[in-house]
């Protein structure tokens, strides 16, 4: 599925947070190349810098030093309007806490990015309904997030992330707030979209269920890349997963 063309590249990414008089290095020189159409999992314990890397790749926060290239364009060179275009059209975001707008219905949440893209209301609604059908929520379009389960809210968030046909979907702990079964469903949905729509999925996670569907796994520890594994290489370790698989079937 993955081509040999880079969609995201990071070079010497460093991010420091100042907490009082202490400087905390969340990222400490990350070089990462991601191919178009890949399904990448960024794994690591909490506090390892996964979310910081997610924010840097998604242009949600500026790195202290180093650069992020999206489709060969250095994100640091973009002005506010170009960055907004990138967030609107090129990247779709999925969060652990779903981040749906609570007062809006599922359909309104999904159509919001199409409004920012300048799509007409009718086209936006048509697109929104089509996406809600794809994620399996065609009938619940009129429900508010509070009337949906966690898994359903995450499906709405996935539909919203796809609204403007992005080439990259960034997911930050997408299964973190979901139970085992719902989490697996969300992972398979992401994989299906990755396969069928050719969208690159980059997911920060510590959910081992992700390993199974990923093309490559990037292990992060203390703000550095500890190792990068191909899916094929970790076939042997899959024994670890069996416990969870059994739990699923019962």
């Amino acid at each position: 599925m993955a081509s040999n063309e880079y969609v995201v590249r990071t070079k010497g990414l460093v991010k420091e947070y100042t907490m009082g008089d202490q400087v905390l290095r969340a990222l400490n020189g990350v070089d990462l190349d991601i191919f178009r159409g890949e399904y990448i999992s960024i794994m690591g314990p909490s506090g390892s810098g996964k979310s910081t890397l997610f924010n840097a790749i998604g242009g949600l926060d500026k790195p202290t030093t180093g650069s992020v290239f999206i489709n060969d364009v250095d994100m640091a060179q973009l002005d506010a309007q170009e960055l907004a275009y990138l967030r609107c059209h090129t990247i779709g975001y999925i969060f652990q806490t779903f981040n749906l707008i609570p007062v809006m219905t599922a359909l309104e949440n999904v159509t919001l990015p199409t409004v920012f893209a300048g799509m007409s209301t009718d086209d936006g609604i048509e697109r929104g309904m089509e996406l809600l059908k794809i994620v399996g929520l065609g009938e619940r379009f009129f429900h508010k997030p509070s009337e949906l389960s966690g898994g359903q809210q995450q499906r709405v968030a996935i539909a919203r992330a796809l609204a403007n046909n992005p080439s990259i979907v960034l997911a930050d702990e997408p299964t973190g707030n979901l139970d085992l079964k719902t989490g697996t469903e969300i992972i398979h949905l992401l994989k299906k979209l990755n396969r069928e729509q050719g969208v690159t999925v980059i997911s920060a996670t510590h959910d081992l269920k992700m390993v199974d569907v990923s093309d490559r796994i990037v292990w992060i520890r203390d703000g550095r890349i500890a190792k990068i594994e191909e899916r094929a290489e970790i076939e042997l370790h899959i024994g670890e997963m069996e416990g969870e698989q059994e739990e699923l079937t019962h």
Binding site: A84, C88, N99
Partner: peptide, 10 residues
């Protein structure tokens, strides 16, 4: 923050 992620200008 969410609206900015979805492409809203400041």
């Amino acid at each position: 923050g969410t609206m900015k992620c979805l492409g809203a200008l400041d």
